[in-house]
Write a protein that binds this DNA or RNA. Structure first.
Lengths: 158, 158
DNA sequence: CTTGACCTTAGATTTAACTCTAAGGTTTAT
DNA sequence: ATAAACCTTAGAGTTAAATCTAAGGTCAAG
């Protein structure tokens, strides 16, 4: 049995957050002490960890509520319903991964096009790409910066 | 040249949102008409699309501002700075992808363990897993549901 | 020359998810 | 037996990112 502050510390959230989750039906302590203190079981803690994992990955609290709340009402749901929900979330996650991958590729391309040296960013491929949103092209620091102690490199050039 | 409503419609945002972005320094129209109407160029539109792409993938507006604002101040940044920022965002994105993958695997495991049929969810592997957060184990609908017109399947069983 | 669709500003409201405040009761340690 | 650290509730405040409202100016069509 944890008191609210203990569970909060254990899971690195604020006690306020746990009260908030309770108010919103995500997580209620299994017991109260005589004096009314919340008492959380290890199961409660597991549930909290699930919530936090789900949250860390971009689920909203209402999505998490939805995911967890079927449980209160089990017998009125079929496996198909439950699996359907999971599969929708799964599709969401896959979509997000795809979006992130798209962006990761863009960022990688930007990163690769920039020499990353101490030259002024005035001719930086990254900034040019952000400005014009055209295809990333490679830097060529051939103009004189007054700096000659290193070479620029560009992975796109090979 | 687009007026605010045209650009908004084109990019599927509200005109309000564009004013909001302007107020927060993300995107200003290149011109104003005589009567004070905002006039956006194709470049402005590209910039908006970049913002929206970044947003779709989980960047906050202030991260986007940061990413875009270096541009106003180019000569005071070195390529190293710019590339550094991009690489930090890249690492963020990769981290998010990793988190999402972790979750995707969990969801997939849940999905695979559930027969997905019309049986009551009272013995649903998914709900049991959410409840107890223990390892997903396979459903066995051997008890009588009064439903016999199909077989349950479980990918974990093979 | 007016109707309707558009635009302007400033500022209030919304939603999600906390986070904090006030006013007080409980537990533990000294 | 009292201070410090905890807990209670109700309700207000915060932040991000819009979204809406009010009060009015502009513009093209009939």
């Amino acid at each position: 049995m944890f008191r609210i502050g203990e569970l909060a510390k254990e899971c690195e959230v604020k006690a306020d957050t746990l009260r908030f989750y309770e108010k919103h039906g995500l997580l209620s302590p299994s017991m109260r002490s005589e004096s009314g203190y919340r008492l959380y079981t290890e199961q409660d803690a597991e549930r909290l960890r699930f919530i936090l994992r789900a949250k860390a990955v971009g689920f909203t609290l209402s999505e998490i509520t939805e995911l967890l709340s079927i449980d209160l009402d089990k017998s009125n749901w079929a496996c198909a319903d439950v699996k359907g929900m999971v599969d929708i979330k799964l599709a969401n996650v896959e979509e997000k991964i795809a979006e992130l991958n798209h962006f990761r590729v863009s960022l990688q391309r930007l990163s690769d096009a920039c020499c990353g040296g101490p030259e002024s960013a005035e001719h930086c491929s990254i900034l040019e790409a952000l400005e014009s949103n055209v295809e990333v092209k490679c830097e060529n620091h051939s103009h004189d910066h007054g700096e000659t102690e290193y070479k620029t490199s560009c992975k796109l050039k090979g």
